[in-house]
Design a protein around this nucleic acid. Sequence first.
DNA 1: TTTGTTTATGCAAACCTTTGCATGATACTA
DNA 2: TAGTATCATGCAAAGGTTTGCATAAACAAA
Lengths: 342, 342
Amino acid sequence: MKKDQVTITDLARELNVSPSTVSRALNNSPFISEERKKVILELAKKMNYSPNQLALSLLNKRTKILGVVVPEITSYYFSTAINGIQDKVGSSGYKLMISQSNESFEEEIRLMEAMALVRVDGFLISPSSNTLNYDHFEKIKDSGFPLVIFDRDCVGLEADKVVVDDYSGAFQAVEYLIQTGCQRIAHITGSTNLSTTQHRRKGYLDALQNNNFPILEDLIVIGDDSSSESGVACMQKLLDLRQIPDAVFCYNDAIAIGAMSVIRERGIEIPDQISLVGFDDEPYSSYFKPSLTSVWQPIYDLGLLSAKILLDNLEMEKENPNYRFEVLKPELVIRESSRKII
Amino acid sequence: MKKDQVTITDLARELNVSPSTVSRALNNSPFISEERKKVILELAKKMNYSPNQLALSLLNKRTKILGVVVPEITSYYFSTAINGIQDKVGSSGYKLMISQSNESFEEEIRLMEAMALVRVDGFLISPSSNTLNYDHFEKIKDSGFPLVIFDRDCVGLEADKVVVDDYSGAFQAVEYLIQTGCQRIAHITGSTNLSTTQHRRKGYLDALQNNNFPILEDLIVIGDDSSSESGVACMQKLLDLRQIPDAVFCYNDAIAIGAMSVIRERGIEIPDQISLVGFDDEPYSSYFKPSLTSVWQPIYDLGLLSAKILLDNLEMEKENPNYRFEVLKPELVIRESSRKII
DNA sequence: TTTGTTTATGCAAACCTTTGCATGATACTA
DNA sequence: TAGTATCATGCAAAGGTTTGCATAAACAAA
């Protein structure tokens, strides 16, 4: 059975004073005599008093809890972002309520509603890949909850946003492949709904065009999701083409790893016959053989900055008129899975 | 600015009835006339009323929030456990407050205290590797919070616990190495404080003794932590021995991956010259070349079961007199990094 | 002594909801 | 018609805290 916590009234009763007096003593109010304050503080310490946050939240209309919704927790990417959020938020006394949507639109709505009900002070959301409609975000905003969207952009939604420059990352990667002499550069994508997928694809296309390379539809394979299994399936398609690619730019490392295993199985050499590039730069990527060339993302910083913006919003008493849109720069990390510049 | 939520009093004022009446209508009390109930429910819907959970929590003394503390979120292992917890808990309307201790004892205490203050209904804790003293757990229990310890055991602490049979996993792995003809089987450990480290080591030792193999202290290397970097360092030590091992059983996959890269660098063949076995069976392990033999752990189920036990405790009105101690079985997954049975 | 000032304290409301008890109204029975 | 049973409703307290306002006491100034 949960023991009842010591309340301010318990202290008051003990000392034959009113709860107000105790409250003032505890809150360092000037309207209290020094001696009494001392006695009260001592008793409070002795009886192990700590204020009831629930009552305070009810009174102040804020819980010091932030709601975080990510597509999946079990992913290096999002757990690292959460890590950044946690580090930013921890010192300011905020707590995190974290949930995963499992890439489900309905679940995302359900989770946000539940969090709104417990009066989180604000939201940090990375939308699911099936979130094509932003009514629930608008609703949350209308109810006055500060909202920061991170990693995946919602085009048309007015809100604070922090994203990575996927376009630039992809562009860099493909430019590099071209510079190293690759001629037939393929691309394996992830979920087509995602802004990240679209931007990386755009970066791929623009890098090709920029170098007067033809765009070959055969070389663009759309994956069901962004898993290694999907990478396996897509790479098989590419290797079944009459003319196989000599480079593959993958939506992410998981796909690249799957692709790598297929290429190896078929006895094709990486990077001599096919250069392989991933995205995310997951920790294991450097331990693969050959180690994976990948686009590193400042994902920890992404979490950090998102949290910072949310906290800033919470500290401002007025509604912020103009939304922030922060774009972080990714970086190509060159390893063994791609050819060297000649 | 956060808009004020519609309260029961707002509805009451609108209809010129008392808040009690509205409350009764909303809660399906029998002491209310059908017509009035209908009107009230309609207005509630129209005005988009939802009860203030804060007020309810204050009244009922429960928040429907569970506190989860893990050593680190950014790890396949713990994020998968959280996944299991989430799936179990989600349907029952409980929310999760999640934090990582970063393997810090002090942080673990701080986090639990903060969660106790916001009145979580119970705790799911995987202790940090520096948690050698369980006073804070005892204190939490004394305050009446239900507590479930998972993954890492706290010997001597009376509490509900869910762990994996690390001993058996290690024993299986080393037995297998022996069966496949390995003679000099090394072991790279993780943090020595952890029950998991101790049990895996014990499993290793017992399997050797069971087969009348000598225990060679040189072949047991203690890592600083359980990272790939530590795996690299430890493997280097092993390969610098006058007589190198012909098999290495690693505390986990991360270490094994690090070890693999060193072995490769030195031009030693896996598994022909050295068999390599990990623990955890992380998703990427099957994609390595050679793919990694590892001990799979039912970590999702670990989370699921821990959450179930906590929920069971919460539903019982009486204090549970006898604690549960659940041990889940791991399974050896044989892949290419270990020799086959002759 | 009276008035005014300072200082410390308590009361009550507010935050939102539920619920035991009392009250009022209505209808039914004798 | 008086008495009683039934039903719907409101009041107030409880949960823990803060805070504006009122009050009381003590003391200083006139």
